[in-house]
């Protein structure tokens, strides 16, 4: 069997020319795919160049060898590193977090909508392939290309972020949305959602607009409300639990010396009460609380849960993408008129 399959491979030309539906898909969507590839290449070059400099800066400041990052030996170089590069994770996260929505819409929404809008479906769908075969190819190939590019970008961002893991952790950062596999899964999800909306709406511009809004909502809403629910958060004292520095904080509160949890209004009152001391002694509220035997608590997701969160979210978006693709395939078989 092994020998047979080797012979088969050898019989094929090395770089087979695209034929059939793959060629048609490439020819009709190459502009969108080239623009997407160009954009991802630019992002990759920037992440690589900037990342190499940032990683080098981290080592040059001795942050990889100064021991406990929160200890006194690391404090000064860490301040310099944060001053120099500290704004970049948020900048990147802001710039890239919503990219899946725009790219998925840009590539996906016109696929069926434009054919219906301009009437070319009468040509495309009366040649020798059924609508089902046609749409399956147009989902599979651009979908795979987008997902592959986004996955490469997400893994590169994962590498880029490495110096920030010791001081900040991955889970609590906004870069969480751009790192790892979630970024690619969201891109595929947005692409299939846009294809389905284009199939239903049948007009290019309304399909683009609706898909953009729907994709943005499908990224922002789960990130805001569902993500913290993936696993039950842990409660911890900020001062005694070292894990709290790098995790994702869900909630925080203050406990008074008698062991009662304060409401946020009570905490605000306390802040007002501490006001004069904070000004006169240049104290932080936190150290004032410690001095007065209050304790600060957080409910948080430890950073060790990063891959668990990524896996849960990735599977949810992939499952939804499959469902959307199946719906689009089912819908396109319906009669047109």
């Amino acid at each position: 069997m092994t020998i047979g399959s080797i012979d088969e491979t050898a019989a094929r030309p090395r770089l087979p020319r695209l034929r059939g539906l793959p060629w048609v898909t490439w020819r009709q969507h190459r502009t969108a795919l080239l623009v997407t590839t160009g954009l991802f290449t630019a992002i990759a070059v920037f992440l690589t160049v900037h990342g190499l400099a940032m990683h080098a800066g981290y080592r040059a400041l001795g942050l990889d060898s100064c021991g406990d990052l929160h200890g006194p030996a690391c404090q000064a170089p860490l301040d310099v590193f944060v001053h120099r590069y500290g704004a970049w994770p948020d900048r990147f996260a802001t710039a890239l977090m919503l990219l899946p929505a725009f790219l998925g819409t840009f590539v996906g929404a016109p696929i069926v909508a434009r054919e219906r809008d301009t009437g070319t479906y009468r040509f495309a769908w009366t040649l020798g392939r059924t609508r089902l075969q046609w749409l399956a190819a147009k989902l599979a190939l651009p979908g795979a290309a987008l997902t592959g590019l986004a996955l490469a970008c997400g893994l590169l961002a994962f590498w880029w972020y490495a110096p920030w893991v010791p001081p900040r952790g991955r889970l609590g950062s906004d870069m969480y949305h751009v790192m790892g596999t979630v970024f690619a899964a969201r891109t595929l999800f947005c692409f299939t959602l846009a294809v389905l909306l284009g199939t239903l709406i049948r007009r290019t511009v309304p399909a683009l607009a609706t898909a953009t809004v729907a994709c943005l909502a499908a990224i922002v809403a789960p990130a805001t409300w569902l993500e913290p629910l993936i696993q039950k958060p842990l409660d911890a004292n900020i001062d005694t639990d070292s894990g709290t520095a790098t995790g994702m904080t869900v909630n925080q509160w203050v406990v008074d010396p008698a062991g009662h949890r304060l409401t946020s209004a009570q905490t605000d009152d306390l802040d007002v009460q501490a006001g004069p001391d904070l000004v006169s002694k240049h104290q932080t509220f936190h150290s004032w609380l410690t001095q007065h035997h209050y304790t600060s608590w957080v409910s948080y997701q430890p950073d060790t849960r990063f891959w668990h969160f990524q896996a849960v979210e990735t599977s949810a978006y992939l499952a939804a993408a499959l469902l959307l693709a199946a719906t689009a395939l089912w819908w396109i078989r319906r009669p047109i008129h």
Binding site: G20, R27, R122, A124
Partner: peptide, 26 residues
């Protein structure tokens, strides 16, 4: 084979690419 009322070809494809597209789908 079907020729629609308004030919419904892709206006941004060249004639050669239109033939190639149809050939790849037939």
């Amino acid at each position: 084979a079907f020729v629609a009322q308004d030919p419904s070809l892709y206006p941004n494809l060249s004639v050669a690419d239109t033939l190639r597209l149809a050939g790849n789908l037939s």
